[in-house]
């Protein structure tokens, strides 16, 4: 900024000259085409407004390269974003199940704290499954982990329970004023996957569907609708978290950070989704944090749905009991979620 202030007087002069030319042409054109009284036309249109804002603001308004508008920079940002997407697209939406040693190999020459934590992880977890880092990794990881769990366990009680929750989520969106046709396809695709894993679907089929752009993105979008609905329904509860995170309103947050595909998940999203669906998630944090005293440990946090959100379904205290260990475990590395498998 200081730098700019130094060069600005000369540049500003040039800009102002140019402006004057523009102003006269603007004035000429308006004279031609608007039937305004002549007296008004002769007023210099671009003279600094009398309130003085023009003078003090001109350095701000006309920075050095003013003609390079934001949309040029938007283009650059979009180029970079597409480069990131291309890079990310080399990984399938949902990868194969890899032994945990694959993670070890990744950090072979890395930070000693991370290496030790990976060793500790190995005591409890046997494998991991990577997901594409496209901003949807949390929802995509959850999607696969949840459907795979149902596919393996054929837990009919759980399917019945979540089906009730999904109906509630539908009602939530309805009561919030969402147009039904904007979300129903996404709900239907999720329910179709749920029914299929419960009946006939093989793990290979689940994997190929999870890699299918359309099905996979539709299910991710279903979770985004569910999350957004829960946040809006309990706006008062979520408001302070959102204010701390982005300094925007609940509505704006949902519109710009929850509903659009590719927007990364924060704790707010995770809390809302686990509450809305009543599914617990354990998140294991693989970062370089350590405490000075005591032994190194891998931190985890369990997202347990709050009782408040399950008030609606009175019969929800299913056979699994109240406090259970989450059957879904995700590995968090700063900026990314993958799926972890217990030993």
């Amino acid at each position: 900024m200081a730098n700019q202030a130094e060069v600005s007087p000369r540049k500003r002069k040039a800009v102002e000259d140019e402006l004057e030319m523009e102003a006269s042409s603007v004035a000429a054109m308006t004279t031609m085409n608007m039937n305004q009284p002549a007296a008004e036309e002769s007023e210099p249109i671009l003279s600094n407004p009398s309130d003085g804002a023009g003078t003090s603001g001109s350095a701000e308004i006309w920075p050095g390269e003013y003609e390079w508008s934001c949309c040029f920079r938007d283009d650059e940002i979009m180029q970079q974003q597409s480069a990131i997407r291309e890079e990310a697209a080399k990984v399938p939406y949902v990868g194969d199940k890899d032994p945990l040693s694959a993670l070890e190999a990744e950090f072979e020459s890395g930070d000693p704290i991370l290496k030790e934590k990976i060793r500790l992880l190995g005591e409890q977890y046997a494998a991991l499954r990577r997901t594409r880092g496209d901003g949807n990794c949390f929802f995509r990881s959850f999607m696969f982990a949840y459907l795979e769990h149902i596919l393996v366990t054929k837990d009919a009680d759980e399917v019945e329970r979540i089906t009730r929750k999904v109906i509630q989520c539908r009602l939530t969106l309805q009561s919030l004023g969402y147009t039904e046709f904007t979300y129903e396809d996404f709900f239907n695709i999720f329910m179709e996957q749920l029914e299929s894993v419960m009946t006939s679907m093989s793990i290979e089929e689940l994997l190929s569907r999870s890699r299918d752009q359309c099905i996979s993105d539709y299910v991710v979008m279903f979770f985004r609708f569910v999350t957004s609905g829960e946040i809006r329904k309990r706006a008062e509860f979520f408001e302070p978290f959102i204010a701390g995170l982005t300094n925007t309103s609940v509505d704006q947050f949902c519109k710009s950070s929850v509903e659009p595909m590719g927007e990364e998940c924060d704790h707010v999203h995770i809390i809302a989704m686990t509450d809305a669906l009543g599914v617990s998630i354990r998140v294991v944090y693989l970062d370089r944090s350590s405490c000075d005293k005591g032994e190194l440990a891998v931190n985890h946090h369990d997202f347990i749905p709050t009782a408040a959100s399950s008030v609606g379904s009175s019969s929800s205290s299913s056979a699994s009991g109240n406090i259970t260990e989450p059957f879904i475990t995700l590995l968090y590395r700063p900026g990314h979620y993958d799926i972890l498998y217990r030993r």
Binding site: D74, M78, T182, K255, E259, P260
Partner: peptide, 12 residues
């Protein structure tokens, strides 16, 4: 923005 990065299927 909604025609670019802030788009979501909630729009019609």
């Amino acid at each position: 923005d909604i025609l670019k990065n802030a788009w979501s299927p909630a729009w019609t």
